[in-house]
């Protein structure tokens, strides 16, 4: 009996994506609970070597300490995994760009670690903002590597990601598929960019310093709302475009992103409500709940943190969708010229 061989670059990249997702959840919780300065030193933890900090003090200590120290430990784990993944990619993959992506992941994880340390040592929210922008960027790179290192065996199991698009006999509505094939990569790339910009705008709001003026906050809210509109429109267009693709995976992925964006809009509104209550100017008075919102409630923290995490998921899914559509375009267009398609 032949045991399946492990394709290490892909396996490690997938593991990296999973651990990074947990790391990002911890990071989002650290910001929600304003726990970034729960441990005043770096790279140590209250004078201990970070890895030798007593388990009991961590797990049974203050909640803020649990989050911040956990975030650091997960960050270290992600660093080690990134090195392993990069080594595997370098050894097993020959493509220069894939190798470059692996190097970019290593650089990003190092930069991210240093930024995290600087945020603590300088106690500076500006560094925190950049730290919050680098996290999703690294997550995107990790997902891109995991997608592109997918072994042929797995690709064969799902031919829609790599197939040439089925038979060469043109159906009457085939021209729509061809048009979608040329449009979808650009739309999905736009969606990916917009999802990232939206996370950057959200990071500015999340790390808002109390000393900034009202105009700054007003502009940031406007930017975040405009970003939400852009992501919503692009996800609708992407779904509409991918719907005509002959491959099923991008279609399902785009639909999933659209659903996630819908949930994200609800969570965004929820994040406002749990932070500042119902906007009295815009809603009928009778909508106002009889009780005040409770600051630092688990439900409130879940809504706000969930909004951030879902934003990361939308970004990650957008990476896969963009790569899928580009891969389809690469695989199908050479064999299916426009003249023939529209004939």
């Amino acid at each position: 009996m032949n045991l399946p061989t492990i394709h290490w670059p892909h396996a490690l990249a997938c593991l990296l994506v999973g651990v990074t997702a947990v790391l990002l959840c911890f990071g989002a919780l650290v910001t929600t609970y304003d726990a970034a300065m729960a441990v005043p030193d770096w790279p140590g933890t209250f004078g201990h070597n970070m890895f030798l900090y007593p388990l009991k003090a961590w797990l049974w200590g203050p909640w803020d300490l649990f989050l911040e120290h956990g975030h650091r430990l997960l960050g270290a784990l992600v660093g080690v995994l990134t090195l392993g993944m990069a080594a595997a990619v370098w050894r097993r993959e020959t493509d220069a760009t894939l190798r470059a992506l692996a190097v970019a992941a290593v650089l990003l994880v190092v930069v991210q670690g240093v930024l995290g340390g600087a945020r603590v040592l300088l106690d500076d929210k500006t560094v925190a903002k950049v730290h919050a922008c680098t996290g999703p960027l690294f997550f995107s790179v990790a997902i891109a590597i995991a997608t592109l290192t997918r072994p042929p065996r797995l690709a064969a199991a799902k031919p829609e990601l790599s197939a040439t698009g089925g038979d060469d006999v043109l159906r009457p509505d085939r021209w729509k598929a061809v048009a979608a094939l040329s449009t979808a990569p650009w739309v999905t790339a736009g969606l990916l960019g917009a999802a990232y910009v939206q996370l950057v705008a959200g990071a500015q709001l999340r790390h808002l310093d109390a000393a900034v003026d009202a105009n700054t906050f007003r502009w940031l809210v406007a930017l975040h709302l405009a970003g939400a509109l852009l992501v919503t429109v692009l996800s609708i267009v992407a779904t509409g475009t991918c719907w005509w693709l002959e491959a099923g995976a991008p279609r399902r992925l785009a639909l999933m992103i659209l659903v996630l964006v819908g949930c994200q809009l609800l969570l965004g509104a929820g994040a406002w409500v749990v932070s500042w209550g119902f906007p009295a100017d815009w809603l009928p008075q009778s909508w106002t709940p009889a009780q005040a919102t409770v600051a630092r409630s688990a439900r409130g923290a879940a809504v706000v943190t969930g909004h951030v995490v879902l934003g990361m998921l939308i970004l990650g899914a957008s990476v896969v969708l963009a790569l899928s559509t580009w891969a389809l375009r690469s695989s199908q267009r050479p064999g299916l010229g426009k003249e023939r398609a529209f004939a």
Binding site: R150, P151, P152, S162, W326, A327, R329, S330, S331
Partner: peptide, 16 residues
């Protein structure tokens, strides 16, 4: 049918 590595390579070139 092109192999997965060819498609990945072509995708990467296009994305380059």
């Amino acid at each position: 049918m092109k192999s997965q590595s060819q498609i990945v390579s072509r995708t990467l070139v296009r994305l380059h």
